[in-house]
Deep mutational scan, measured.
Amino acid sequence: MDVFMKGLSKAKEGVVAAAEKTKQGVAEAAGKTKEGVLYVGSKTKEGVVHGVATVAEKTKEQVTNVGGAVVTGVTAVAQKTVEGAGSIAAATGFVKKDQLGKNEEGAPQEGILEDMPVDPDNEAYEMPSEEGYQDYEPEA
C-alpha cells in the first residue's frame, strides 16, 4: 500500500510541476504579447503594419512553449490582441483601416495563427491545408 501511495504522490508532483510550467509559459506569452502591443503603439504610420505582424510573430513563438489545451486559448487571445492593436492603430490615425491585415508588401496577414497546427491532446499534428499553395516548377 505504501508503494501505491508513494507512486500516487510522485504522479501528483509531476502534474503540479507540469501545471506550473504551463502557467509560466502562458505568463511569458502574455508578456511578449504586451511587449508587441507597446511596440505597435510606438510606431509611426509606416511601421504600424509591420508592428502588428511582430506582435503576432512574438506571440506565436511563445505559444510553442505552452502545451496542451492552453495553446488553443493563448492563440485565440493573441489573435484578438493583434486585431485590437490594429483597431487602436486605425482609431489613433497611425494607419488607414484599409491597410490593416496586410503586410508591407500588401499581402493579407489573416491566418497567421489560424494555420498553425495545434492539437490540445498532444496526440497528432496535421499540416495546414494546401489550398493556398501553388506547385513550383523550376525553369529549365
Rank of each mutant, 00 (worst) to 15 (best):
G41S: 12
E137M: 12
S87K: 05
E35W: 12
G93E: 07
Y125C: 06
E83W: 03
N103P: 05
M116L: 02
A89I: 14
A53L: 14
T22Q: 01
A11P: 00
G132K: 14
T72I: 14
T64R: 08
A30N: 00
V48K: 01
M5T: 01
V66I: 12
V49C: 08
A124W: 06
E105K: 08
T59N: 02
Y136H: 06
A140K: 15
Q99V: 13
Q99S: 07
V26C: 04
T54F: 15
V40S: 00
T44V: 07
T81Y: 03
P117N: 10
D115R: 08
Y39H: 06
M127H: 09
G47Q: 00
V16F: 13
K6R: 06
A107Y: 15
G51D: 02
K10S: 03
A27K: 15
M5E: 01
A76W: 02
S129V: 00
K80E: 05
G36P: 04
G14K: 10
V74H: 02
A76F: 02
H50C: 10
T92Y: 04
K45P: 00
K60I: 08
A56M: 08
P117T: 11
E46P: 03
K102W: 13
D98T: 06
V55Q: 00
E57Q: 12
D98L: 11
K96Q: 14
V66H: 07
P108S: 08
L100M: 05
E126C: 14
E137Y: 02
Q134V: 08
A69E: 06
D121F: 04
A27R: 07
L100W: 08
E28F: 06
K58C: 02
F94I: 12
G41P: 00
V48D: 01
K43H: 04
P120T: 04
T75I: 15
V71A: 06
M5C: 00
G41E: 02
N103W: 14
A78G: 07
Q62T: 08
A18K: 04
G36I: 15
D135T: 11
E13S: 11
A124K: 13
G67A: 06
I88L: 09
T59S: 08
E13M: 00
A69Q: 11
V16N: 08
V95G: 04
G14D: 12
D121R: 12
N103I: 03
A124G: 10
V74E: 02
G31L: 15
V74L: 12
K97D: 13
A76G: 13
G73I: 10
Y133V: 12
A27V: 10
V70Q: 02
E20Y: 15
S42Y: 07
E13D: 01
S87W: 01
S129M: 11
P138H: 07
K21Y: 12
A29Y: 07
G101A: 15
K80P: 03
E20A: 08
F94Y: 14
Q99M: 12
E28T: 05
P117I: 10
A89Q: 03
Q99K: 09
E105A: 09
V118D: 12
G41D: 00
K58T: 12
E28C: 03
Q99R: 00
F4T: 00
E131I: 13
N65E: 08
G132R: 04
V55K: 02
N122A: 11
A140F: 11
K96W: 15
E46G: 04
Y125R: 04
N103D: 12
S129H: 10
G51H: 01
T44R: 02
G31K: 14
T59V: 03
K45F: 13
Q62K: 10
A90K: 10
L100C: 07
G101P: 00
V66Q: 03
K58E: 05
K60H: 10
L113P: 02
S87H: 08
L113I: 12
Y136M: 12
P120V: 04
V70P: 02
I112Q: 12
G68K: 15
L100V: 12
G31V: 07
V37M: 09
M1L: 03
H50R: 14
M5W: 02
A30I: 07
Q62H: 07
A91I: 15
T64G: 05
V70G: 01
N65T: 12
K45Y: 12
V66S: 01
A90D: 03
E123P: 01
A30W: 05
Y136A: 07
A30G: 03
I88A: 07
K21D: 01
E131W: 05
S9C: 05
G111E: 10
V95S: 07
D121H: 12
G132I: 10
V26W: 11
A19M: 15
T59H: 02
L100P: 01
E139P: 13
V66G: 02
V55Y: 02
M5F: 04
K102L: 02
N65W: 11
V52W: 07
V74Q: 03
M1D: 02
Q134P: 08
A85Y: 13
K23T: 06
V63D: 03
E83G: 08
Q134D: 12
G73V: 10
E105R: 06
D119T: 08
V55S: 03
A124Y: 09
D121L: 08
V118R: 04
T22W: 05
K6G: 01
P108T: 10
L100I: 09
D115E: 10
A27P: 00
Q99I: 13
T92N: 05
E114C: 13
G47H: 11
A11S: 01
P128R: 10
K23A: 09
V118K: 12
V3E: 01
V118I: 10
T59E: 01
V37Y: 00
K60M: 11
K32F: 13
Y125L: 12
E130K: 06
D121Y: 14
P120W: 11
T22P: 04
Q79S: 07
E114S: 10
G51V: 11
G31F: 14
K43T: 08
P108M: 08
E131T: 09
K34Y: 05
E57D: 06
P120F: 07
K80H: 11
Q99A: 11
K43F: 01
A124M: 04
Q62I: 06
A140I: 04
K45R: 13
E139L: 13
T81M: 09
Q99N: 07
V48G: 02
V82L: 15
V37L: 12
N65Q: 04
A78P: 01
P117R: 04
V118L: 11
Y125S: 14
E83M: 12
G47L: 13
A91K: 10
A124N: 12
V66N: 03
V15A: 02
Q134C: 08
N103M: 08
E57C: 07
V37R: 01
N65A: 04
P120M: 12
G7Q: 11
L38T: 05
E35D: 03
V95Y: 08
T92L: 08
A27D: 03
Y125W: 07
V82G: 05
Y133S: 03
K34V: 11
M5S: 04
E35N: 12
D119G: 13
M127V: 15
T59G: 05
V3A: 04
T75M: 13
V16E: 04
V74F: 09
A30Q: 02
A90C: 14
S9G: 03
D119S: 03
G73T: 15
P120G: 06
G14F: 06
N65H: 08
S129R: 07
P138F: 09
E13A: 06
K32A: 07
S9D: 07
K32I: 12
P117L: 06
K32M: 03
